[in-house]
């Protein structure tokens, strides 16, 4: 564990708490892509099933339990509790276009052709693109509530912080995880546009609005 990874994980944790806070206080899931949230549940379940048979640490175990349970809870909030506030007509990205290729990629690129390893690769690939329905929705509506942009910023920061973590691990432990690194770089790159608007507008106190 190094500080980059720790702050990355904390940022990930914070993003979920911000999202929960947004839904609970506004009593609405407006502006949140259900598809992205459903993809995250898929990602967490596929990757963290190892918590039943592979012990890493108490930290690792608790985070996995938190990520799986909170992501399922968010789906419940969106589909049941605050269902009327979710508008599927603007959440139109075809998620199956993401899941299909990720299954294929996982079958080709994995560290071992076993069920848990292919599942792990699948979750890594899927996580790298899971934010696309959300970013697509943002692009489509052209604006976002400030709290939603803080959620995305925390999520993007988590990905960005994993990059110096890998560089650090390369020099301190001599390990490289090519699948995680390549997928992680792609994932972080997807946030570049968002971060540009976030830094130049939201952090200057303006509303998040995309140029028409």
């Amino acid at each position: 564990m190094n500080l980059f990874r720790l702050f990355g994980d904390l940022s990930h944790l914070a993003s979920i708490l911000i999202l929960l806070h947004k839904i609970q206080t506004t009593r609405s899931c407006r502006g949140i892509s259900f598809k992205t949230q459903a993809l995250y549940v898929t990602v967490f379940v596929a990757r963290y099933l190892d918590l039943f048979y592979d012990w890493v640490s108490l930290y690792n175990f608790s985070m996995k339990v938190f990520f799986i349970s909170s992501s399922i809870y968010i789906l419940y909030l969106m589909k049941v509790r605050f269902r009327p506030t979710h508008d599927p007509s603007i959440d139109t990205f075809r998620a199956e276009y993401l899941v299909g290729p990720c299954v294929v990629l996982a079958l080709i690129f994995n560290y071992k052709f076993t069920f848990p390893e292919v599942l792990w690769s699948f979750s890594i690939f899927l996580e790298s693109v899971a934010i696309l329905p959300q970013l697509f929705m943002l692009q489509r509506t052209g604006e976002a509530e400030t709290i939603t942009t803080h959620y995305l910023a925390a999520l993007g920061a988590y990905r960005a912080l994993y990059i110096p973590n890998w560089i650090y691990r390369y020099f301190s432990e001599g390990v490289v995880d090519p699948i995680a690194v390549i997928a992680g770089l792609v994932q972080t790159a997807l946030y570049v546009d968002f971060f540009y608007v976030y830094f130049t507008k939201v952090l200057q106190g303006q509303k998040f609005e995309l140029p028409a």
Binding site: V56, W120, Y162, V176
Partner: peptide, 10 residues
Amino acid sequence: AVKPVSHDEL
């Protein structure tokens, strides 16, 4: 140096 990975990251 690519070593076998233990998947210890989240």
